[in-house]
Design a protein around this nucleic acid. Structure first.
Lengths: 110, 110
DNA sequence: CTTGACACCTAGTAGCACGAGGTATACGCT
DNA sequence: AGCGTATACCTCGTGCTACTAGGTGTCAAG
């Protein structure tokens, strides 16, 4: 596993993109998203729960996600998040913004 | 000019890298650094003065930069910043971290 | 029946980018 | 001489957010 990034807020402003992207493949619940992100980034992005849950809440409040409680095993309930069309659009925008950001950065720190 | 990034703090945690990199070419004063960054990023990173000056101060306090007042024209004084060896090393570390960050991100949001 | 993984949530804190303001010098224009 | 603009510095306050550190409860395995 590569070195983690989560120390300090280098992620500031990019967590949303990470979460939206994780949901593009299909609906998922918070804890699963958290794991998806960790796995997809090979352990580099090890988001704290205290980061993910509030972030999901914010995204939902902005209409980019919507959620519903789903019964898992027994009495167990999970809040499952789904990308809304608005969220899909925002994901596209943020990916583009990310590209521009990286490009500019590469030149500026070259 | 491409769209600016400065709205929202997407830069969080990367401003230091931007400043250190700008100083690698040689000593410069705050205002010049600000312009260098803007030009090198083709206007994408248009850092506010309220961002740059405190950041430079922090970097100096961490021993990554040192500064001295230099006479410009007439009575005019400028605080010129210089990369210390420690700063140079930190620049290297941050560039590496940045690469890892970008790589992980590309995969995670692909 | 306790341990640990799963699953959710909520304060509270720290840190930073930014906006808005303030001061002052130099220079070009009229 | 007067004025606007660019240069050059600084500082306070605000807002946002990632993270820490807790808390609750469910489920499966030993």
């Amino acid at each position: 596993m590569r070195s983690k990034v989560s120390a300090g807020d280098v992620l500031k402003g990019h967590v949303d993109l990470l979460l939206l992207a994780a949901l593009e493949a299909g609906p998922a619940h918070g804890y699963a998203i958290l794991e998806t992100v960790r796995e997809r980034s090979e352990g580099v992005f090890d988001l704290a729960e205290g980061t993910v849950y509030p972030a999901l809440y914010r995204l939902e409040r902005r209409g980019l996600l919507d959620s519903s409680w789903v019964e898992a095993t027994g009495t167990r309930k999970r809040r499952v998040y789904r990308l809304t069309p608005k969220g899909q659009a925002e994901l596209g925008r943020q990916r583009t913004a990310w590209d521009g950001y990286v490009t500019a950065m590469q030149v500026a720190i070259a």
